[in-house]
């Protein structure tokens, strides 16, 4: 049996401040496995850890504990210049990557893929003034059809954001204070009072 597309294994990232009495300022924990190509919607308030999660999954940020396995390869053990062959992070319209270079590249292994397996879209601009939304959603579906895993991070502020998440996503992750909640549908997620609180008036669009 082949390795799952993504296995986030006991992942922890902790930020601490202070030298003598260090205090944890932020902590995110994640532990989940995605076996097959899927389109996953990621939501959560600002500062909840969405982007940190994406950085950990693309290997640009080093975890405090745990590991991220992309198709069987530990992404943090892969040469920095080849990590985007496993997982690529798109920040709005262009890609950003600043790597924590903890060890020299010659000590790291080569990526076993030639084309990104996991695509993470961080708050793509869904602009109502042009027709790009349609093209973008079809592109997400095309990637999935090509056996890729797609994450779309979106902070819903309009009814059509809920509609497009419903339209294209098959699974959802809600990030809240560094904790992940997984669900197969938005209505399931909407049973969570924290998610209701996050969506505010938009919660009526989910039902």
């Amino acid at each position: 049996m082949s390795a799952p597309l993504l296995a986030v294994d006991g992942l922890v990232k902790e930020y601490r401040m202070g030298v003598f009495k260090p205090k944890t300022t932020f902590r995110i924990e994640a532990d989940f496995t995605i076996e097959k190509p899927t389109v996953i919607g990621v939501m959560g308030p600002n500062g909840s850890g969405k982007t940190t999660l994406f950085e950990l999954m693309t290997g640009s940020n080093a975890p405090t504990a745990g590991r991220v396995m992309c198709a069987g390869q530990n992404i943090h053990r892969v040469k920095t210049g080849e990590r985007d062959r496993l997982a690529i992070h798109y920040h709005q319209s262009y890609q950003v990557r600043h790597f924590d270079r903890s060890r020299p590249d010659f000590m790291l292994e080569k990526a076993k893929s030639d084309y990104p397996l996991i695509h993470l879209f961080d708050e793509p601009q869904f602009n109502t003034q042009d027709g790009y939304i349609g093209f973008m959603l079809n592109f997400f579906r095309k990637l999935r059809a090509e056996e890729r895993l797609v994450f779309i991070c979106l902070h819903p502020t309009e009814t059509y954001h809920i509609e497009l998440l419903n339209d294209v996503c098959e699974q959802f992750i809600f990030v809240h204070h560094g904790t992940l909640t997984h669900a197969d549908s938005l209505p399931t997620l909407a049973a969570d009072p924290r998610f209701q609180d996050y969506l505010g008036n938009l919660v009526t669009a989910v039902a």
């Binding site: 262009y94 890609q95 042009d130 027709g131 093209f135 079809n138 095309k142 339209d167």
Partner: peptide, 30 residues
């Protein structure tokens, strides 16, 4: 159509405009 450095869509103007979301957004429905 190029986005994120990749071809995300391709076709005749008519075929591209058939998409439901494209129709809605260009008609101001959103």
């Amino acid at each position: 159509v190029i986005h994120w450095g990749q071809v995300i869509a391709e076709g005749t103007p008519a075929s591209l405009q058939e998409d439901e979301w494209v129709k809605r957004s260009s008609l101001g429905g959103l």
